[in-house]
Design a protein around this nucleic acid. Sequence first.
DNA 1: CTCCAGGCATGAG
DNA 2: CTCATGCATGGA
Length: 293
Amino acid sequence: MGTRCELTVSVAEFNLTETLQSGQSFRWQQLSDHEWWGVVNGSALYVRQDADRLTVRHVGGRRPTHLWQEVIDYFDLALDYTAILHRLRRDHVFARIVPGPATLHILRQHPFETIISFIISANNHIPRIRSIIERICERYGEPFDTAFGRAYSFPTAEALARARLADLHHHCGLGYRDQYVAATARQLARQRDFAAWHKLPSAKLRRRLLQLHGIGEKVADCILLFGYHRLDAFPVDTWIRRAMTELYFPNERPNRRAIQACAARRFGAYAGIAQQYLFVRQRSEDRRPAPNC
DNA sequence: CTCCAGGCATGAG
DNA sequence: CTCATGCATGGA
């Protein structure tokens, strides 16, 4: 219990800012270099990272019964990412490309929030994904007060299933994705075993996800990785396609199957973690201005 | 102003 | 089965 907890975590094992900027979560707001606040499962949290310490405060909404445990679970602080990176570096190409410490973690996010968020992510920019999600929360989530002003929980499937198509389209700014979000929310709202999907083996869970509207292979793999913590899932988007082609298929045009088979062979059970490092690296590579030789 | 985004559904071949 | 095309919107 308690509204505040401190954990001893070295930045060599976990980097809060890099993790929250890595495109897997959309509801965190940055206060300074190493301070963030956001809504997780109905709780507003303030998080600050210093050199060897993570400080978390509950600042509104649902009061966690065991804040400390929820924080360890959400940021995946119990898993030894240093050992996993060491194992991933048995692949010498990966070792050369990702030489630094284990900074990026895979968050454990709520499945329904992850499903809706990544349906919205398709063919969309991250800043715009964030603004659409905030409007959905404001309209269909539960409001509560926080130290940073009014906030909203992510809506339940039942609440989102009651949404009107025109509101999703125009007020939330979903555009043509309105049908996908509405249909999926309605289907999951009456899917009585949805809460038990986490027990399914990954292959079966992936097939279930692919049956939902607006979910193709890439989005399904993001949901497996970020919403169900299946660390072997390897989402192939434009950035990963570029990175994997450059690194492992020079002068070829590999399809998704070839890329995923390559990732499974080289990275095994932790392919999803390798993917997140490659994604962040490839994006920063692209943002960097072209070297003027 | 134009360009394009952590792709998907759809239809043609 | 693979592959091409259209797609709402708004941030950059």
